[in-house]
Design a binder for these strands. Sequence first.
DNA 1: TTATAATTTTGTAGCGATTTCAATAATGTA
DNA 2: TACATTATTGAAATCGCTACAAAATTATAA
Lengths: 139, 139
Amino acid sequence: MKTISKHLTDSGIKPSYQRIRILTYLMENKNHPTVEMIHKELVNEIPTLSKTTVYNTLKQFVEKGITQVINIEDNETRYDADISTHGHFKCLKCNKVYDFKFDNKNLEVSDIEDFDFFQTHLYIKGICKNCKYLLNIKN
Amino acid sequence: MKTISKHLTDSGIKPSYQRIRILTYLMENKNHPTVEMIHKELVNEIPTLSKTTVYNTLKQFVEKGITQVINIEDNETRYDADISTHGHFKCLKCNKVYDFKFDNKNLEVSDIEDFDFFQTHLYIKGICKNCKYLLNIKN
DNA sequence: TTATAATTTTGTAGCGATTTCAATAATGTA
DNA sequence: TACATTATTGAAATCGCTACAAAATTATAA
């Protein structure tokens, strides 16, 4: 709780109760939640929590650089408090989003050599190990 | 025109007038357009063209695998008739989306070794060469 | 050709995600 | 305590997209 609060103030965000709870949720559940998911969970603890607050808070987190947006699917915006450059894998069977590491430094790109890079997003879609295993059992 | 029509029939899509025009637009203007942009342009030539038709047609193109969706931004779905694996760079200054090549084969990823990959999307955001140049002139 | 069936396009209505905005609540300051 | 500032809330509005049924077009059969 102390660290979360400090994380906010360090980023120029006043640590209100709602903001602390939302950031705590993001850091404890690394499940790349949607606004819907965050609200649904937190409204149990904070009955008055409005969805607008979740939207406003996440927008602010992204602007201040302590949260990144995951656009792996066009109909759902997900959020991740891990702002390090890493990839996201979405299983098309169970819909779970996995984190993965990739070598950003040795990523060879051409055609955009003289461009300045601010953010890199790598998304892979497919079938995860667990679902592959379950599919094999069935057949 | 002949080739576009053939491209459609080869993919199991009946080459209606609207479908031909939409695919032609995608192939001639490699500008990664949104539904809005496609409709705005084509309604000049086809005054009765409805946005629903553009949505339906693109959905079908994606299902049949002749068009891919670009989710580089959460508030705009873009489309690309180039279905080869390539990256997309969005300039945060001029908002243009550039294509770029990257070495998909030598992409080193960890944590998801035994997963099956179906699609890979690489998005980079930053400032393009042209905007960098223009910024330098100003200052 | 003509009648009928199947497909495509169109426009309206509806839905869900997000934003706007004004009122209320909470917090900070003199 | 009084006042100013900021944050939260909830209702209404907006936007992108989908559902659906009617109209238009195209294909098929007699």
